[in-house]
Design a protein around this nucleic acid. Sequence first.
DNA 1: TAATCTAAATGAACGGCATTCATTTAGTGA
DNA 2: TCACTAAATGAATGCCGTTCATTTAGATTA
Lengths: 245, 245
Amino acid sequence: MGSEGVGALTAVAGEAKQARRRAGRPPQALLSSSRITRAALKLVGQDGYKGLTMAALARSLNVAPSALYNHVRSKQDVLLLVEDHLMGRVDVSAFGTRPWAEAVCAWAHSYRDVFAGHLPLIPVIALLPVTNAPATITMYEAVTRGFLDAGWSSESVIDAIVALESFIYGSAYDVNAPEDIFDAGTLAPSAPNFSAAVAGRGLRAGGPVTVPEVNAGPRNDADAAFSLGLNAMIAGLAATLGPQG
Amino acid sequence: MGSEGVGALTAVAGEAKQARRRAGRPPQALLSSSRITRAALKLVGQDGYKGLTMAALARSLNVAPSALYNHVRSKQDVLLLVEDHLMGRVDVSAFGTRPWAEAVCAWAHSYRDVFAGHLPLIPVIALLPVTNAPATITMYEAVTRGFLDAGWSSESVIDAIVALESFIYGSAYDVNAPEDIFDAGTLAPSAPNFSAAVAGRGLRAGGPVTVPEVNAGPRNDADAAFSLGLNAMIAGLAATLGPQG
DNA sequence: TAATCTAAATGAACGGCATTCATTTAGTGA
DNA sequence: TCACTAAATGAATGCCGTTCATTTAGATTA
């Protein structure tokens, strides 16, 4: 019964070449939402989202593709599962322990960093209702509390959060932009100011590529633009809050 | 020769049921980048991006799907063509005629409005190099000039533009979010502050759904969040600019 | 306990998709 | 005139998400 029945017909050493399971409901359920979520996340970690296909997901769970549809209505459902799981990794701990501006800053950075590695989920977050996405709702609750505690009115919190989120989503894309995204190529002469500004970008303290270090993972420009925009928006929002409560 | 050869075998009245063209290079080229772009745009206007397939595109141009690949390397190329065309619709005219903050505001609104109807292009804009996207480069040049004229340094313009663009992309998604995106459903009790704030959203001057009018096209909440965030970021950026030039 | 219902698996399809390739034809330059 | 290249057709490929009939096992009910 509990023997897991991993019997290969002729168990060749090592290679987990599973025996073909015969049709019909198995004694122990092979699939569940959380198993599917974990497998999907693992697949994405290996091959990215191009590797996340229903067939590959099924194979990684040692199951026929059609079996997935007993637990999930569509591939979108899988994406929603993954999205909600990842939302649990967004750090909201600064709300309640740090002042509002700092907390927003920490939350936003964490949020962006989590989803910069999961761009195909952004349309899912931005467009799908949060119903049945418990971790997502938990995150929103924590952030809302942080805003209310800082003096925000109930009527304007959501707009402020949405504005910040919009910026975060766009910034997550930017993290994945190639280094030469603003390379005008042969058309550079027709856009002299722009080209010069692109060339002069990152002439910041610390230099551009002067210090290779370990090459700093993602692009450094993206971080600079993110910090600039985030600080600006936080300051601007704080100013909005000030006069009228 | 120049007769266009639209000869149906038995020309039944009206219905443009084209005769099958025989294989081989036609006397007059049937395709070009601009024809492909226009056809793609028309298709998208009719059926949205789900309707934009290479097969449908070919059919609308009265051509075999494989013929497209003589003018375009991939479907991504088609998307890039469309993207660059649309970028020409983004209004940059306020730069040079209005003060910086106003110009940025007008540009950002126009930018968001154009691409809110073309969400699948956002990954294309955000991730693909601008090389060979002349209208896009032209847009950036105008915006860069506007920033430089307002006193921005060449080293920080691009970061500021990228920050604003990130916000714009995210906001374009938000325009398309369903009304009930923040509906927590059965989990609402577990997130009381959030749920209350969602319910209290849009209790602004003018009311929420009090005045149906023509139902105002896209969601009103999206506009409120966009304005709030945009004004905040513009104010914050202007403050950054002030002290250090 | 027997009969029925439902949950969860298989495996064979399906239609749609982007893309490739061999082939054909027409213009172009040596 | 002859090669070369550009631009079309049409058949084929492989992948992908999804559906459906079928099978088996557990759960519920008579």
